[in-house]
């Protein structure tokens, strides 16, 4: 028999390292006479798109063309220390560092533009890729012209920025407190179909809503949401590291299965934007939040479908059949039940 169920998983996630741990990044930007800009950042590109996002930040701040921005990243010989890419911190902390480097240089840019246009510097604004004088139609100067003049007039063309994500530690005795400067939120909704004969769980559809603060690049965020959900699907249904005396028994991709294109359900990626003033343009970290709610949402949906809760960390067909009482689950065969894990009681 095939039965269906719906489940929700929700999470809150502290972005960055928190707990007053060191969490800082530095970055440099330089404007070349031809109007190109180089960013030096220690942020490493893993495919999440941080090079794209950092370039977008610089293009926005300077009114430069996105195509004219070059990124030199994650080279300890050349780039300043930006800390690791982890804890969903790269846009939030390293992005803020690049923003600070731009701001370091922006005053120089604006004062020269005001001289060239013959207007007060508070009337200069950078908008839609151009540097223009407020309320004075026709007074426009291109970024590349300005860049060239900066060099001709011997202005500073190199900016440095540092961002420190300062956080508080929790109370040592009570473990209570506000340990992060930014929190990300996400909820996922999953519909499953469980085959009670075989124990196989099929994900019919999945919706993932992630609060990203501000979507600097919506396409990259969708990619993270979809990729995160599919990893979470793997954790819930397929992936289990089988370790025996420190040795992996399934250390290759024919025995440790990960989702293929055929395992992916239709996914609705919902981007929620609740601005966080501490992030660049209100953005906050969203990479790990995209994968955390998936497994609980799937396990909840299975419980809804079969009216019994899978307490194994993996809802494999075998474990689902054990929960349904169709095969003997008493031996546990090395699986750890969640209820076996001691939970601290207040």
């Amino acid at each position: 028999m095939k039965v269906r169920g719906i489940g929700i998983g929700s999470m809150v996630y502290g972005v960055g390292y928190g707990f007053s741990r060191p969490d800082f990044a530095s970055a440099e930007v330089e404007i070349a006479p031809d109007g190109t800009v180089t960013i030096w950042s220690g942020a490493s590109e893993l495919g999440q798109g941080i090079r794209t996002v950092l370039s977008q930040i610089v293009a926005q701040e300077f009114g430069a063309a996105y195509e004219d921005i070059r990124v030199i990243s994650a080279d300890t010989d050349k780039t300043p220390d930006s800390g690791p890419v982890s804890a969903s911190r790269s846009t939030y902390v390293q992005g803020n560092a690049v923003l600070a480097a731009c701001k370091d240089l922006k005053q120089e840019l604006i004062s020269l533009a005001s001289e060239l246009m013959g207007v007060e510097s508070n009337l200069v604004e950078i908008q839609n890729g151009q540097i223009a004088a407020k309320d004075k139609i026709g007074k426009i100067i291109s970024f590349s012209k300005l860049a060239s003049e900066m060099h001709v007039q011997g202005r500073r063309t190199h900016g440095f920025g540092w961002h420190n994500n300062r956080t508080l530690d929790v109370d040592k005795n009570t473990s209570q407190g506000d340990a992060y400067s930014s929190y990300a939120w996400a909820s996922q909704l999953v519909e499953v179909e469980v085959d009670t004969q075989t124990g196989r769980v099929k994900i019919l559809r999945l919706a993932s809503a992630t609060d990203v603060g501000k979507a600097i690049n919506p396409q990259l965020i969708e990619g993270q949401i979809e990729g995160g959900a599919v990893q979470g699907l793997g954790f819930a249904l397929m992936e289990e590291m089988q370790v025996e005396q420190g040795v992996f028994n399934n250390a290759n991709l024919s025995t440790y299965l990960i989702p293929t294109a055929a395992d992916v359900p239709p996914i609705d990626s919902l981007i929620v934007e609740v601005s966080d003033p501490s992030g660049p343009y209100g953005a906050k970290g969203m990479a790990e939040p995209a994968t955390i709610p998936t497994t609980p949402a799937i396990l909840n949906a299975i419980a809804d479908a079969i009216s019994k809760r899978v307490r194994y960390s993996l809802a494999s067909p075998e474990n689902v059949l054990k929960v349904l009482g169709k095969i003997d689950g008493s031996g546990k065969e090395g699986f750890l039940l969640l209820e076996d894990i001691p939970y601290p009681v207040a």
Partner: peptide
């Protein structure tokens, strides 16, 4: 289906 991808979730 014979090509594994860990990042994208395949949909794109």
């Amino acid at each position: 289906s014979g090509n594994l991808c860990r990042c994208t979730g395949y949909r794109k």
